[in-house]
Design a protein around this nucleic acid. Structure first.
Length: 572
RNA sequence: GCGCCUGUAGCUCAAUUGGAUAGAGCGUCAGCCUCCGAAGCUGAAGGUUGUGAGUUCGAUCCUCGCCAGGCGCACCA
């Protein structure tokens, strides 16, 4: 990566002029893309940071760094500006060589950061017997993007869908099912019917304590292995999986493991026993809890007063099982913001149990409606499948409005890719940690910073290649080197080479939006280039170089979108 | 009450975690298709970064106090 090459060189330079603090220099010196094109391509601000410590003027330090006579071949210009900024302009010849290397590299320069190390990703994790609604989309899409990004960086990724298939809701559901289910409706739409039954039974439990007691009994029977309740439970899980699989297929999401909470049900007692044996958990107010005073956190309950286990227990059992079986270096959980406290508690307990795997909670803001939060009981949920349908419908309207000549099934396919891509991109292109207020127009945006803008840029490049082949049938792109003659194409070249940095950043921050931001910037730069720099009309040599550069942009766009789980089309 | 998060152009969001003149899209206004795909491009207007202090060469970013909103806080997950 460009920044690595520059950083390494800068570290040596700083270490040479600050021999007393070489170790710290090697730790901290960084280079970053220039904030303003006029300054150069990259910059380094560390003369200012070190000046304080050595009590010397920052500008003098910077000048000393810049003064060395052995200027490496990748730097064309190195200058000092303002209080001590080091501005670097890269050499065109070196940029061209880097582009040639990128063109020959199937990884497009993405480094092998993982080196085979294992990352386990826990995401999506919907509850059985409830429909997937738009609140589930963020975990699924962000988690899947993190999955793809880590795989690209050479990690061994295990994506695990930790279904909510063993909670207290099953007592309510089983009793409701026995009393209210409509077999015809169940055949027609199982999940909708189960949802109706659940809501009705839930209402009963709120009004009638006796009903609630009977729900608890059903739950106890299920957990004790009662054959009838077990059969019902299996049926519910099967219905839900069918629906989930349908949605996942549409979203292009695949898991390596689908292990719901039920998978760990026999481990729960052992977790509590271990905590007690190690003196970490003790009885309090009838429950078994772990006190977390050092961390200044509330107590973590691992067994309720009624003897039942809860979420924290399940998570601890799950973690232990994962460590035993896969020994992951890192486990990433993707959930909404409401679970922050829970994860802080859970991680604290895990550490006390000696867990050394790096555990990360990636949380995202809740999805809301303009009128407030939505809930199953208020009946104002928007189902995920309906969102996807609507996305495809709107995209199809745009395709038709554009006067597409393509046959209907091709238009349908374009609408599918554009619509689903728009939904995903709307979520992935912004910082996950903000609350989002759902609106159809935003989720399905088809212009501006959106998937269709990127897909359009991509399709235009595919067209460029076709046009080139058509007009210059004897042309052979591979015979011509890449050259940089126009400022805009040079700018585009630098952007293309920054792709690996965007991927690394997205992984480091667990923020796929870093890639989305980068791709949008790349597509914008490309569009300006496309509009303002002639290439098929350029002279031979320049023409081939520019068509090849276009091809590299296309490769990066395709790969980048793929990392976000968004498909591309050659025609749109 | 305590904790976490958010507040940036009329609206939706960026700003590479302390860097230079805070950038995009939508919307508004003015231009660009006999031309490599106009789902595009060029330009204009639009800002006391919620607010008040502090830290330093330098603050949207760090510290403290306020204001507004969201989400949590012992037996749901």
């Amino acid at each position: 990566m460009i920044s690595d090459v520059l950083t390494e060189w800068l570290k040596e330079r700083f270490a040479a002029i600050l021999p007393g603090m070489a170790a710290e220099v090697r730790e901290r010196v960084q280079s970053a893309p220039a904030t303003n094109m006029e300054f150069g391509d990259y910059q380094c601000n560390d003369a200012m940071t070190f000046a304080k410590q050595v009590k010397r003027p920052p500008r003098a330090l910077a000048e000393e760094v810049a003064a060395g006579d052995a200027r490496p071949d990748f730097i064309a210009e190195l200058s000092v500006a303002g209080p001590g900024f080091l501005n670097i302009r890269l050499a065109d010849s070196w940029l061209c060589a880097q582009l040639e290397a990128l063109a020959a590299d199937s990884r497009l320069g993405i480094p092998d950061r993982g080196n085979g190390r294992t990352v386990l990703l826990d995401y999506s994790s919907p509850n059985v017997a409830k429909p997937m609604h738009i609140g589930h989309i963020r975990s699924t899409i962000i988690g899947n993007a993190l999955d793809r990004i880590h795989r690209a960086l050479g990690y061994r990724v295990l994506a695990d869908n930790h279904l909510g298939d063993w909670g207290t809701q099953f007592g309510i559901l089983i009793l409701g099912y026995r009393n209210f289910v409509d077999p015809a409706a169940l055949r027609e739409n199982p999940i909708a019917e189960l949802e109706r039954v659940y809501v009705k039974s839930y209402d009963c439990s709120r009004q009638d304590p006796a009903w609630l007691d009977r729900c608890r009994e059903e739950l106890v029977k299920l957990q004790a292995g009662d054959p009838d309740n077990r059969a019902l439970w299996e049926q519910f899980v099967a219905y839900s999986m069918a629906e989930f699989d349908r949605v996942y297929r549409r979203l292009g999401v695949q898991f390596d493991l689908v292990r719901g909470e039920s998978y760990y049900r026999d481990d729960l007692a052992g977790v509590v026993a271990e905590l007690e044996a190690k003196g970490l958990a003790r009885e309090s107010e009838g429950a078994t809890v772990v006190f977390l005073e050092e961390e200044k956190l509330p107590v973590c309950i691992v067994r309720k007063r009624d003897g039942a286990f809860n979420y924290a227990t399940t998570d601890l059992a799950t973690l232990a099982s994962r460590v035993r079986e896969f020994n992951p270096d890192q486990i990433i959980y993707v959930t909404d913001e409401r679970q922050q406290l829970h994860f802080r508690q859970f991680f604290a307990v895990a550490r006390r149990l000696g867990c050394t795997a790096r555990v990360t909670h990636v949380w995202f803001g809740l999805m809301r409606l303009p009128e407030g939060t939505f809930s199953t009981r208020q009946g104002n949920v928007i189902k995920l499948e309906r969102l996807l349908d609507e996305a495809e419908t709107r995209a199809l309207e745009v395709v038709k409005r554009g006067g597409s000549e393509a046959p209907p099934e091709v238009q349908q396919e374009i609408a599918r890719v554009v619509g689903i891509g728009a939904v995903k991109y709307a979520d992935l292109s912004q910082n996950p940690q903000t609350t989002v207020t759902f609106s159809w127009d935003k989720a399905l945006a088809l212009e501006g910073n959106s998937a269709p803008y990127l897909l359009y840029a991509y399709a235009r490049i595919a067209s460029v290649r076709d046009k080139y082949a058509e007009r210059f049938p004897a042309g052979d792109l591979s015979r011509w080197p890449i050259r940089l003659t126009e400022p805009l194409e040079r700018e585009l070249a630098v952007r293309v080479l920054q792709f690996p940095e965007a991927v690394v950043r997205a992984a480091d921050l667990c923020r796929p939006s870093a890639i989305a931001d980068y791709l949008y910037d790349l597509a914008q730069t490309y569009s300006r280039f496309y509009q303002n720099v002639p290439f098929l009309k350029a002279e031979e040599g320049v023409r081939e170089s520019r068509v090849r550069l276009c091809g590299l942009v296309a490769d990066v766009l395709r790969r980048g979108l793929e990392l976000l789980g968004i498909e591309t089309l050659e025609r749109i």
